[in-house]
Computed example of a mutant assay.
Amino acid sequence: MELHLVKKNALILASSQGLGKAMAAELVKEGANVMLASRDGEKLAAAQRELSQLGTGKVSYMVTDITKAEDIKSLVAQTAEEFGGIDILINNAGGPPGGSFSDFNDEEWQQSFELNLLSFIRTIRESLPHLKKQGGKIVNIASSSIKEPIPGLILSNTFRTAIVGLSKTLASELAPDRILINTVGPGRIATDRVQHLDKMNAEKQGVTPEEMTEQSINKIPLGRYGEPEEFAKFVTFLVSGANTYITGQSYLVDGGMIKSI
C-alpha cells in the first residue's frame, strides 16, 4: 500500500517521548517532514537526533507549552515557515492527574481543560489556514475512556470524551475543505504514562506494580500491553494519502480490552 507521505509536512504535539515520539518516527520512516513539540528541550533535541536517522524527511523541534496560546501560535507559524506548509496535524497531550471528583478544585479542572482540550482547539484553529490550502488530515489522540470511563481518572474521562464531540462536529464543517479529522484512543500501551498509572493503582489496592500490571493484562484478550509502534502505525494510516474517505470517526487501539460495541 502506498501511503503518499513523502515530503508531507506534519506537526505533532507532545512528541519528545511516548506515543507522540512513536508517531513521529513512523511518519519520518515514510518520508514526511516532522515538527516535534513539547516543554522539554533536552528530550526534544535527543528525539530529533534519533528520528533524523530513520528516513529522508526533515525533523525539527520547538520547545512549546501547549497550555499557552502564544506558544501554539509560534509553533504553527514556525512549522509552516520551515516546511512550506502543514499537511498533517496530530494533537496529543500528556494525561491529567488521577483522582476522584472530590480531589480537584477549580484551578485543577481549569489546568486540565487547557492542557487536554483547549490546546487541541487552539492548534486546530491556527493550523486550518494551512490545512485548507490543499486539504489535510487531523488526528486527535484521546484515550480508551472515550468508550468506557476509567475509574479514578475523572479529569481524563471528561476532557477526552469532549475531544470526540469536537472531532465529530469538525468532520462536517471541514469536509468541504477536504480535511479529514478522526479521534484515536490508546488502551494499555507500554508507555511511561501507563507505568505511572499502574503504580498509582497498585498503591491504592495494596499490591505491587507488577501484580497491578498482571491484573490489567488479564483484561486484554490479546494478553499483553500494546507497543507504541503498533499504535503509531494505525495513526500513520489515518493521516496518510491512503485514507481518502474516513472522517469523523473514533477508534481504539486496545488489544480488544474495551467490550462496548
Rank of each mutant, 00 (worst) to 15 (best):
K133F: 09
P149K: 04
E107H: 03
A32P: 11
G20H: 09
G255C: 12
T64F: 10
S60E: 15
A232F: 10
G185E: 03
A171W: 03
K21Y: 07
G85Y: 06
Q205A: 14
P176S: 06
S167F: 00
A25I: 09
E173P: 04
S216R: 14
R122H: 05
L155S: 00
S127C: 14
P176A: 06
K29N: 05
P97H: 07
F113C: 03
Q17H: 13
S119D: 01
N218K: 15
K137P: 01
K259G: 05
Q17E: 15
F237H: 00
K68P: 09
V194Y: 04
V63Q: 14
P209T: 13
A24G: 08
E82A: 14
V164R: 00
V235R: 08
I72Q: 15
M62H: 12
G223C: 11
G255V: 11
I189Y: 09
L115F: 01
H4V: 11
D65L: 08
N91I: 03
S119C: 04
D198C: 12
T169C: 08
I217M: 10
N140K: 02
S119Q: 00
A190S: 14
V164L: 04
M200I: 08
K168T: 03
L36C: 07
Q78N: 13
G18V: 12
K259S: 10
G57Y: 08
S250D: 03
L51Q: 06
A14L: 09
Y225P: 12
I121K: 02
V76G: 14
T158V: 01
E203F: 06
E81P: 12
Y245C: 04
M257E: 14
D106E: 07
A14H: 11
E214D: 08
F113T: 02
S15F: 12
P149C: 08
H4Y: 14
G18Q: 11
G206Q: 07
G255N: 12
P151W: 02
L153Y: 02
E148D: 14
Y61R: 07
L44M: 06
N243V: 00
A10Q: 05
S38F: 04
L170C: 05
A22Q: 07
I90Q: 13
G152Q: 01
I220S: 06
I138V: 04
L238K: 00
L89C: 04
I258C: 11
K43E: 15
Q48H: 05
A171K: 00
G241E: 08
R224Q: 09
R193H: 13
L222V: 13
N91T: 12
G57T: 08
I154F: 01
T79F: 12
A22H: 10
Q111G: 12
E26T: 13
G152S: 02
K21T: 05
N33V: 07
D254Q: 09
E211S: 07
A45I: 08
A242L: 12
I88S: 14
A142P: 01
L75M: 14
L238C: 01
L170E: 02
I72Y: 14
Q78K: 15
G31F: 07
P151Q: 02
R125S: 10
M23A: 10
V207W: 01
G165S: 05
A80I: 09
K137Y: 03
G135F: 01
N243K: 00
A69F: 13
S143L: 01
I261N: 14
K43N: 15
V164W: 00
L36G: 10
F101W: 10
